[in-house]
Design a protein around this nucleic acid. Sequence first.
DNA 1: GAAATCTTTATTTTT
DNA 2: TAAAGATTTC
Length: 708
Amino acid sequence: MEKKINLTSKQQEAISEIDHNLQIIACAGSGKTEVITRRIANILHSKQDIKPENIVAFTFTNKAAESLENRIVRALGSELSANIKTMYIGTIHSFCYNLLTKYTKQFDNFKILDSVKSHLFVKRNFKECGMSDLNLEPYSFNINLFLQCIEKMIDDYENSDNWSQEQRDVLNKYTNFLYSNNYIDFSLIIFETVKQIESNPEVGKYLSTLKYLVVDEYQDVNDLQEKLISHIANYGTNICVVGDDDQTIYQFRGSNANNMISFSERYADVHQVHLDKNFRCAKGIVDVANNVIKNNKRLISKKMISTVNESNGNIKAERCFDEIDEFNRIAKKIIKLHNSGIHYKEIAILVRKGKFINSIANILDDANIPYETDSTEHFFSGNYFNRFVITLQILTDIDKAKLYECWKDVAERTNFNIGFKFLRSCARGGNLPLSKIIRDFCDKIAFLDETANDIETRHIDLDGISKILDDYDEIYGDGQLSARINGVLKFLGTDAINEYKYYNFKPKDPNADNVQIMTIHKAKGLEFNTVFIPRLNEREFPTLGFLGKRYYHVLGGVFKKNKTKYQSSLEDERKLFYVAVTRAKQNLYMTYSLASKAISYFLDEASSSAYLDINNNDLTYNPKDVKYDFTKSDGVCCKPNSKNSNLEQGLDKEQLEYKEVVKYAQNQLIDYYNTGAQFYHTTHTMLSDIREWSPEKIMNEASNLELI
DNA sequence: GAAATCTTTATTTTT
DNA sequence: TAAAGATTTC
């Protein structure tokens, strides 16, 4: 957000409040980072005894930390920011890691297991980690499920008296085995830090030097993190929390908006400031967002106000045939916008589910629109991934022709021969790290030849595969080469794709002019001139969610009783929609499909805003040209007699079915199937049969009965 | 035509 | 594990 010269009185109030605990309730686009920045600058300017090292600022991500630090440096000027590095600006996790390594003997040279390495570590030592002691059936090898259980137990440790003895044993087994191998995971970092604060006077001494703590994105803090914050507050530290309970979107990780709501009750002497002016979004966009979020039961009442006066913005919703049609229309619209002078990088496509990113990317490829995404699915289906896999295979099964076949378009024959010779020598003996083998091979075949036209992709792909191989070798590096190759090939074939799903292999280039495709979660805190939100159908957004065996099925007991704690509700999905909408400065384009499920509730709710222009009518199609996939889920329609039916009660079967078929028809193939619905009602022909018919047949049958 | 049974398929992600 | 679609059985 550009720097605002004129501060509102509320912003000024927050910046000046440095003597009491402070809660800033900041709506989207309210310039909260600017306020935090200036407040910290204000502290350093007006309190001579406060040094940067007496201030701590928690951010949600490392990226956010970096940008906050840059802004503080700018705000302070060169003299005051000289020892800015002594101020802690970063995530809660790194803060805790620093404390543990600095103030404890036990953890002073521990390594962190991130989610990928945890996976590999547990896979290798599943018995020692206690995995076989939990009943994960029928998924006894679902490591993610096991790790989920561990994480929830750590979060809930306070109540461990209410767990079964077996569960306490499993957690002990897991932590002890990690610690005996000099590893710690992310949940344990905070857990152990809290323990240290409670017991280690050295840590207490350090905390008492902290005079100011600022917590950004406070609405997404979980209970363990909140405990840490309250411990710090006990040392007399001034606490300032900033957040918006309407933007809590990480409840599945334990984000607890109640922390936000009850802050002023739990902390002494709290001053509250509401920043309700949105400097980002045009009036219409704010109106749409307000009209949707008002359907949540909100405990902190507020109403966001747009201060953008130049235009009301363009807010459109469009009905499309299906998913692919939606993405094609988006591509067309992007070309139009770009021709009218909007940069690609000012355009974002925000999706509820990561799985759409790939097919959107393919369509943008076809339309020659440059884009950027950090979905790694793209990496695993990319040009070079499979070649690396084959190259690794060659190490256990020498096949020169096969190898040449896959590299011949990028390698000269002579270079290739040198590379092959090298691979053969690796296969014979030695124990080089796998990433070194691949890198050296690529070196020898001159893979990173600077004249290659896709040189950037080659660099990214080689870095990506190296990272995966290094992660693998960190856990399995002591094995025989052939065992490691077989293991890593298995990992690459199945688990790696899931484990690296949201990992950014590719550093973002801020100067590149690319359309941004990402999940809404990733768009938190960002803004774009134009935002597209596709797939606004029921059970897509809001998503159906909570399927599959979950941690509370495994753990049962108190975990089952409190399962809603991490479950996302309709209200949580609405918050996510709210976040997506408020990323847009000027243009907001939403699409939904006719040929799948019913229209999203949220689009319905948004339509109570006069600014939303819903285009339901321009859908012209020739039934002969359009192939509908009736084998897909039919959304609102399900068999009333089904055991699992979730249809509302209180209607008789016929009413119920008629209601459902009309709803189905309205949402799907309006004209033809509306007729189809009447036909159903009159003749009692099975709905499933009608859905097999062509539109022509329906029209024909219906006219025989004079239904049209 | 209804009921029972079988089959398929299941979010979001930071550190 | 559980929802919902598909298929079979009665």
